Simulated assay, not measured.
Amino acid sequence: MPTHVLSSAWKKSLLAAGCAVTLSACSSGGFNHSSNAYDIETVASQNASERVRFLVLHYTASDFASSLHILTQPSEHPVSSHYLIPENGDASYPHKDLRVYQLVDENRRAWHAGPGKWNDRTQVNDQSIGIEIVNKSYCEPPVETGTVKPGKENCFFPEFDPQQIDLLIDLSKDILARYPDIRPTNVVGHGDVKPEFKIDPGPKFPWQKLAQAGIGAWYDDDTVKRHLDYLQGNTTSDRQSIRHHFAQWLADYGYGIDPDNTSDEEISIYTRAFQYHFRPWKVDGEVDNQSRAILLALLEKYYPRKLSSYKDIDTGIVAELSSPASN
């Protein structure tokens, strides 16, 4: 069986053939049974939702051949993803045209995000689709420590292949069309759900371009400016108070930080993860006014009811907003 994804037309022909044999297995409601030993009657319940709620993006840190081997073959620490997207110029890639490789059926759990946390979910693997993107970004530990910790590593981040990103956009649109519970804020990177150990897809990943194509979240510049003007004029809060407020905002947006029980180092780690995603031109883990304004703009856009509860932020306009995403 070829490892690349079946074309849409070929998928449809297979589905039609299967439906001709067993109608019940092709029910649009997902009701599946294969035994003739009992009678089954289907009544579709309205009290259900899709299991898939997240789309998690990664870079592979290695070439195509190595990535494919690692993601498909047994090992001491096995990993996998639902999809793998190659890049141009990779000598280990066997085709002239870029193809999406499907490695795990979407109905099965791939091992790509570990015990990642997002919103109120602590096992992102169980409810996500993972896409690995071939990119040779890597980080090495400082010589004096021997271990990699976010913010302390020496990293190299090559640009992503534009054609590869276009392919990712097409695949992601297809996935989002089939899983409406993946809201914009639930399209995340590995570094968002596991920032203590991961930073991928890194600062060169074009999150804004994906958002412009309808994939994932991004902020509005005018809203950032409005919040930034307010924050720069408000100098009454001390550094520690500002950082803990920011931890609360991160948690409200979806990050797995516990604002009531967090250390200063942990706030820096989660702030850095946020910056890799939304302010990649300056990733330092510092809770500065620009980072705060960007996060407030995101909360205003996607969770306005949460933002309106902040007593120290000018939210007169925001308090009147209402959004399905804030429910």
Results as ranks from 00 to 15, higher is better:
residue 170 D to H: 05
residue 233 G to F: 02
residue 201 P to E: 08
residue 173 K to Y: 12
residue 238 D to F: 02
residue 171 L to W: 01
residue 222 D to G: 08
residue 236 T to D: 13
residue 203 P to R: 15
residue 248 Q to M: 07
residue 182 I to E: 08
residue 196 E to H: 02
residue 173 K to M: 15
residue 204 K to I: 10
residue 202 G to E: 12
residue 204 K to N: 09
residue 210 L to H: 03
residue 225 K to S: 13
residue 253 Y to P: 06
residue 248 Q to G: 04
residue 230 Y to K: 10
residue 230 Y to W: 06
residue 196 E to T: 02
residue 210 L to G: 04
residue 204 K to R: 12
residue 239 R to S: 15
residue 208 Q to S: 14
residue 184 P to H: 06
residue 189 G to T: 05
residue 238 D to H: 03
residue 246 F to L: 11
residue 176 L to S: 05
residue 245 H to E: 13
residue 213 A to E: 09
residue 203 P to Y: 14
residue 197 F to G: 13
residue 189 G to L: 00
residue 241 S to W: 10
residue 230 Y to L: 08
residue 185 T to P: 01
residue 229 D to P: 01
residue 250 L to T: 11
residue 215 I to P: 04
residue 170 D to V: 15
residue 230 Y to V: 11
residue 221 D to Q: 14
residue 185 T to D: 04
residue 175 I to C: 00
residue 178 R to V: 02
residue 241 S to Y: 07
residue 214 G to R: 00
residue 228 L to F: 04
residue 179 Y to L: 06
residue 187 V to P: 04
residue 239 R to T: 15
residue 196 E to Y: 00
residue 196 E to Q: 04
residue 236 T to Y: 07
residue 230 Y to T: 09
residue 253 Y to T: 05
residue 182 I to A: 06
residue 197 F to P: 09
residue 227 H to I: 15
residue 222 D to P: 06
residue 246 F to V: 08
residue 193 V to A: 12
residue 193 V to Q: 11
residue 246 F to E: 06
